[in-house]
Structure formats: C-alpha cells, structure tokens
Design a protein around this nucleic acid. Structure first.
Lengths: 350, 350
DNA sequence: CTGAAAGCGCTTACAG
DNA sequence: CTGAAAGCGCTTACAG
C-alpha cells in the first residue's frame, strides 16, 4: 500500500478524491451521507477517508453554504457556580445538536462585553446567548450585534430597553414570585422583622426580587425599615463584609431574604463572625439553589432555579429561533421553586 | 446619501468596495492596517465600513490564510469551581491575544471526550487544552486528535502514555509536594493518626497526592493504616457520604489530608452530621484553594493552586507552542502553596 | 451514479 | 498607491 498521506498540511477532499480516483464532488456526497452514491464507491471513499485521517473542515463548508455551526455564550463570571452550571447546560444541549460553544467572559464590565461580543461576532455565530454585565445598555449591544444574528437575553435585562428591541428573546427567572415565596415562608415561620440583603438595586433581577419581598411584607401587613435593605456585590466575600449593616442600628431583623445563594452563604459567614448561629439565632434564605446550598452549614433554604436545566433551555430557545427567524420574539419566564432547608428557622424565643 | 446597505445577507468586502469605488483588495488592505494605502482612500473606506456596518468574516480569512483563531478547551466539569475558575483564566488570556475559546465539556466520560474532541477539531482550532476525563487513554486521544494540532494536557495524565507522545506539552500541579506539605503541617500540629481521604486512585493526580502523604508519614516515622485511605468521587456529596468509613473501625484518625477542597468540604459536612466539629474535634486539609475554601466554616487549610492563574498559564503555553511547533515538548509543574487556616487544628486533648 | 464548474468571503503576490 | 486574478476547502446545481 503505497500511501500518499500529505504531510505538513491538512488532508483535504482533493487528497481523498485523488487517493481513490473519484471527484471531489463524490467524496463530498459520501461525507454528507447522500443516497446518490454507489455502495462500492462509498466504501472505497470511506476507507480512504480513514486511511488518510481526514478531518472535515466545517469552516469551509459553512462558508460555502452560508451556514454556521457555532453559538456564542457570553457570561459575566464563570467563578459564580450559577453561571458555571448554566454554561455546562448550554454546552451540553448545543453539543448534542452539533453546535459548538464560543465562550466569552465579561467580568461584569460593559466595556469588555462590547469587546467580547465584537470579537465573537467575527467568528460568525448563528446566535448569541448573553447574560448582560451590570449597566450594559441596549443600544450599545444593538450597535455591536446588529439585527442579523439572533440574541437571547438570559437572567438580566439590559439598561434602557426600547420597544424596537422587542425582537430579542428573553429567558428570565421568576424573580419577584420567588422572593415573595421566600418572604412568605419566613413570615409563616413567625418572623416579623425581615431584611432584604445583598445585590445591587440597579440590576433588574435584584429589583424584581426586592419587589417580591416588599409585596409579601405589605400583603402581610408588616412594616419594612430602610436600613433593612442592604446592598452589596453579589459575592460571598462582600456579603460577609456587609453583615454588620444589619445589626448596627435599632430594630434589628431576625431574618433576611438574600439576593442569591452566594450572598446568603456570605451572610452566614458574617453571622458566625458575630457569634450568631445561622439557622438558629437568625434565619435566612437564598436564591438559585447552587450545589453548595444543600451542603451549607446549615443547609440553605433557597429558590431552585436549576441553572443547568436553564442552560439547556436557553440552548433550545436560540436553536428554535434559528428555525423561525421572523417569528414574534419570545419572553420565557422560568419557574422557581422554594426548597425549604434548615437555614429558615423560626425566630429565637427571646 | 442614497445608501446601498444589503439587507437579508451579510455585508462583504465587495459591498464596501462597490460602495466607495475601490477594489476589494484595497478594502482588505485597509482592514489589515496596511501602510500602503493612501490616507484619503483609507478614510473613505473606513467611513463606508462604518456606514454599512461591516463585520469581518474571520472564518473566510482563516480559510484563505490557512490560519486559525480559536483554541479548544475541553474540561470534565464546569460545575467544579476549580475548572470553572481555570476556564475563566483561559478565556481571559486567549481573548486578550485575539483567540476565541471553543468550549467542550466531557462530564468525566472518556467516550464523550472522544466525541467532543472530534467535533471541536472540525472547527479547526489552532490548539487544544485538555483536562482528561478519568480513564481517558493516550492512544484514543491520539487517534482523534492526530499530531497536527498541538495539545496541552492539564491537571491529569492520560492512561497508558507512551514515549512517542512526548510531543504533548503538560501543565501539572505539584501534587506530591503539596500533599506532603499538608501532611507535614498536620504532623507538626501534633497529629499522629492521619488519613488520606477522597479521590480515585486510578487518577494520576490522586496517586501523586497519596504518594506525598505516604512520604511525609514515612519520613516522620508514623504508621499508616489501610482503612485510613478512603476513596470516593471527587465531589462534596460523595465525600459526605463516605465519612463514616473513617470512623467505623478501631484506631480512628484525628486528621485527614483530603484529595481536594470539594472533598474536604464534604467531609466537614459528614463530620457535622456525626456531631464532630471540623477544626476542633477533627483536623483536615484540602487542595486547590477554591473560593469557598477561605469562606468555609471553619476556613479550610489547603494548597493554593490559583486555578485562574493556571488558566492564563495554560493559554500562554499553547500559544507559545504555536510559535514553535517543533520545539521539544514542555512539562510544566505549577507550584502549590500551603495556606494555613482554622481547619487544621491540633488534635483534641483527650 | 459521477464529474466539471462556479462560488462562499477573504488574502496575497503580481502588475501597473 | 491600486486593481485583476488565483486560491483556501468545501457544496451544489447542472450535465452527462
């Protein structure tokens, strides 16, 4: 077998065609599983493909066919388990459908988001899944993304969304409802002085959760104090630092609805540092149900958002949009579910 | 300004050229910043690019130039913060150098790893960063990846590595040294009965850490019991479940060197469930220094591997390899550093 | 059932 | 300083 495997460059359809005496076109048909080609020809070509170690050049095919086989995934922060699990779900569903994930991280910077989107777009993704950085503005995103490639907004809205952007699909969590459930749960346990802890109020998800909390308090006829609304970055560390804001005044709360699990876990740490036992001396709830929530000490009552499942869902939604580019834009609100664990104890009997 | 912005398809170099009365070649030169083109021509072209909202088609350029601007990143499990932080570091460094990250997750399955590598390769990455799934075999990986595209092995070795694969670069952690440091630290604190907890002994990183533990014990003249070596999946949950294996026999240990932080945090949970206070009744150490380690209760003594920094380093190493495809393969061992926190208490005075 | 030819969007010598 | 032409690796009507 005098082999003619080109070395120093990739093997192409030409090499295969030459290798078994057919035309490029025939090899292409074999690759694409066309029924037109003769069984024996097919077998000969397939042998040759294996023998030369041919690897399909999908970029070339995409260029010719004006198609794309990638989807861009743009996230703030993979170090946040919520996004990491989401990304895993996206990649899983995209991979199963033959798409590849183009990853980009923005680190919560709208400027980096612009740069990342611009760079990913040059690679011609069929669609984009974007979880916007804080302060990311609709017109900026539109300016760089344009209207050609479909975008799915996940988790947060953009600043200054205008009606003309209605063609962007959205996958959001039912933030307000979730926070209301958590608050109602604490109220049912007997708490009256309940704080809303963490997050920045200029993020839409935070505002929605805050609204759910306020709604539940109002409905139950409970007052809320301004100093019970403590803002902080949505990270464990900052939450731990800000814990004192809850206790440095009169009228100390007995419980807190936290913006998310990261913040709740940070608050637990802050409580411990003050000699308070979370789940015994102070009740709290999270949001997201990241893997650590169930394993906290104590386990954290929270709202399950099933981030990995949301990732799969997001992938389905963009792929669906590719089929129907002109259909009306879709706003999906993913349900959330209260998961009661030990952290949401009754108030201490003082 | 009678604009001729093509609608329904992307705008190409042709559109720009036609739009301002120059040739495609000139537009291309402008895009690539060539000094050859006249200032006024350049300005006219740049205006037109903006006006029509041109976006560069990097895939077409790559095809023509036989170059690539993507790197594949193949990981087990983004839900593990160690890998998530690593991925963030990789994407950051690649992005800064103008590469895009092609993501693929294997879920610790060698079969999925094959499929993922195959699919990513069709997109023509310039290089691959692979953290192998358990039981991933060298010859399998070679079969799908071939010798054309450079591969960087991160974190784990492949099964059955042969000398001919020596051309694959490696970035490993100093596992043995790290585990030895942790063990010596516990010994210095006064422990004599020390367990090695978690991980699967058929993963190279686990074997290396185990070796470091055994070395330190032997050097200190301490015995080790077989039942002090407890295997479990490298997850929090499984570690919590396996905790009892440490206590269900005679000669119970007073401390454990854990395979990694996830396992250590799981063990803390298991200890709590048995009424033992980690960091007071039982000492333990982790490995990785993921973000949660410092925020555990108690904070976890561990080995800092700086996963995000490792990610940047991995990106640098592949990009370096692209410059020098023929240079001898490089084995990089990243240093690890003991970070002492409260979890590694002295043994309880009984 | 198979081949010759055109073209996807770009780059790059080569003339002029 | 600018343009005409060839070609990267593939696909797809169109003939035969």
């Amino acid at each position: 077998m005098s082999s003619h495997i080109p070395i120093g460059r990739k093997v192409t359809l030409n090499d295969i065609a030459a290798g078994c005496g057919v035309s490029r076109a025939t090899v292409s048909l074999v690759l694409r599983g066309s029924p037109l080609v003769n069984k024996l020809t097919r077998a000969r070509v397939e042998d040759e493909l294996r023998r030369q170690g041919y690897v399909y050049n999908r970029a070339a095919a995409n260029l010719r066919r004006s198609t794309s086989s990638s989807i861009a995934l743009v996230l703030n922060d993979l170090a946040n388990p919520f996004f990491a699990e989401f990304a895993e779900g996206v990649d899983e569903a995209l991979g199963a459908a033959g798409f590849v994930t183009l990853l980009g991280c923005t680190g919560e910077s709208a400027a980096r988001e612009q740069a990342v989107l611009g760079s990913l777009l040059e690679h011609g993704p069929a669609g984009i899944i974007l979880s916007p950085a804080e302060h990311s503005e609709a017109h900026q995103v539109l300016a760089v993304v344009g209207r050609r490639v479909p975008l799915l907004l996940f988790n947060r809205e953009l600043d200054g969304t205008l009606p003309e952007f209605a063609h962007w699909d959205q996958l959001m969590l039912d933030n307000q409802h979730g926070a209301r459930l958590a608050t109602e749960h604490l109220i049912a346990r007997g708490h009256q002085r309940i704080a809303f802890f963490g997050g920045h109020h200029d993020s839409s998800s935070c505002r929605q959760r805050l609204a759910g909390y306020l709604e539940a308090m109002r409905t139950a006829g409970l007052r809320t104090e301004p100093h019970w609304q403590v803002e902080c970055a949505p990270t464990r560390l900052d939450a731990a630092h800000r814990t004192s804001a809850l206790f440095d005044t009169m009228n100390v709360p007995t419980a807190a609805v936290c913006y998310n699990d990261a913040v709740a876990l940070g608050l637990m740490l802050g409580l411990n540092q003050r000699g308070l036992r979370p789940g015994q001396d102070f009740a709290l709830t999270g949001f997201d149900d990241i893997a650590e929530a169930a394993l906290g000490m104590p386990p954290l009552t929270t709202l399950s958002t099933a981030p990995q499942e949301r990732g799969r869902q997001a992938a389905q939604l963009v792929m669906q949009r590719l089929q129907q580019p002109l259909a009306a834009s879709q706003q999906t609100i993913a349900p959330v579910q209260l998961v009661v664990r030990e952290s949401s104890c009754p108030p201490p009997a003082n």
